Amino acid sequence: MVTELKEQIIETSLILFEKYGFHGVSVNQIVQVSGTSKGGFYHHFQSKDELLFVIHDYFISYVLTQAEEAIVSSIFPTVKLQKIIKSFVTVFDLYKAHISVFYQESTYLKPKYEEIIKQKRQNYRDLIFDVIQEGIELGEFRPELSVDIIGMSIIGMVNWSYKWYKKDGEKSIEEIADMYVDFILHSLLTGKTKQNPVFQPYFLHNRLSSST
């Protein structure tokens, strides 16, 4: 299938880019290692530069779509933020290799591709900021907190997961995501909001209490 060939090329390039760097890998190497052909490569990608863009775009588009779905499918800002954080954290398991290449090789993105990625990242930040602002206005989140500082703190904290997360680590990605949710919501929610039964399952101590 066409999609399988495209995925095969991407997976091979991820391995090669991680090992040798973007400029250390040629299209010929990608074709040879992936067992495809130049015709197959150029059917899916105009160039190696476009391939690098697609790798970057995969996980950014994923978290952006997940955030948009969280916003339209939920009423409470707390629920929206919980879903956004969960999907944000799990992306480091789903697209770990993509993200490693992103941070390692992002400086080599061509300007036209870099602009697209920057815009999607800005859109993602705006969605998170909007949810926090909405939570403050509706009285779910603490009003004395800065939307920008809290928003960037969440993004920065979760982003750093790529540095230390390991698939075979002590905690699964789902457990790590639950810890992030617990930590962030405990810091962000008002005392009254924390008592809302709708949000109780988001706090780890409540889960432990209900299981004993």
Rank of each mutant, 00 (worst) to 15 (best):
M1R: 09
T3D: 15
T3F: 13
L5E: 12
I9L: 15
L16Y: 08
G21R: 05
H23R: 10
V25M: 09
S26G: 05
Q32P: 02
V33C: 05
V33Y: 13
K38W: 01
H43L: 09
F45E: 02
F45A: 04
Q46W: 05
Q46K: 12
D49C: 07
L51H: 02
F53T: 01
H56R: 05
H56S: 08
H56N: 13
I60V: 14
S61A: 12
V63N: 01
L64K: 11
A67M: 01
V72Y: 11
S73M: 11
P77V: 01
L81F: 02
K83G: 08
I84T: 05
I85Y: 10
V89K: 09
S100L: 13
S106M: 08
Y113V: 10
E114Q: 10
E114H: 14
Q119I: 02
R121P: 00
Q122S: 13
D126M: 06
I128A: 03
D130W: 07
I136H: 01
L138K: 12
G151P: 10
S153W: 10
M157T: 09
S161G: 05
G169Y: 09
S172Y: 10
S172K: 09
I173N: 03
E174D: 14
M179H: 06
H186W: 08
L188Q: 09
T190P: 05
G191M: 07
N196M: 06
P197I: 04
F199M: 03
P201D: 06
H205E: 14
S211K: 14
S211P: 03
